[in-house]
């Protein structure tokens, strides 16, 4: 009987640090985290998670973000450390629930937009009236 088969850890494989010691030449521009894996298989954590302390995976329930390619049952990689901007897909706290919306910051105020005409937008007077839980960086869409 096997014990501890691949511990269930949500965690990045390594820090960007090892990029610096990689013997693979790095082209100009932001180094790809893939560089540390010159000797192994693709590690999704290394590609998808920038900061292990601030990254969570959540699951979508509902179709209001359909227009953004995010469907019911998809998983989202959410980074809490990112500063949400106009156009970010964010997880916001609405009525005590984690809710996914497109953030629109306009001169008139802040709008939490659905990406599905069947769902209304929500207007918020200012960003400070809103609790943003995190910013979605990737969608793991089930095709």
């Amino acid at each position: 009987m096997s014990v501890i088969v691949g511990p269930r850890v949500i965690d990045a494989g390594t820090s960007l640090l090892s990029v610096l010691v990689s013997p693979v030449p790095v082209a100009a521009g932001f180094p790809s985290p893939a560089q540390d894996y010159f000797d192994g298989r693709i590690d999704l954590n290394a590609h998808l998670i920038k900061d292990v302390t601030s990254t969570y995976v959540v699951r979508v329930s509902g179709e209001s973000m359909h227009g953004a390619g995010i469907s019911d049952g998809d998983e989202l990689i959410v980074d809490r450390a990112l500063e949400p901007r106009d156009g970010s897909v964010v997880v916001a706290v609405l009525d005590g629930e984690l809710t996914i919306k497109r953030l629109r910051i306009t001169p008139k105020g802040v709008i939490l937009q659905a990406e599905n005409p069947a769902y209304p937008d929500i207007e918020v007077p200012a960003l400070s009236d809103l609790t943003i839980w995190g910013t979605a960086v990737r969608c793991l869409h089930h095709v």
């Binding site: 850890v9 949500i10 979508v60 509902g62």
Partner: peptide, 15 residues
């Protein structure tokens, strides 16, 4: 167990 089990991830409402 929101962060250690794939089938218990936190749900975010898209509604």
């Amino acid at each position: 167990r929101y962060t250690t089990h794939w089938d218990e991830l936190p749900l975010v409402k898209a509604a």
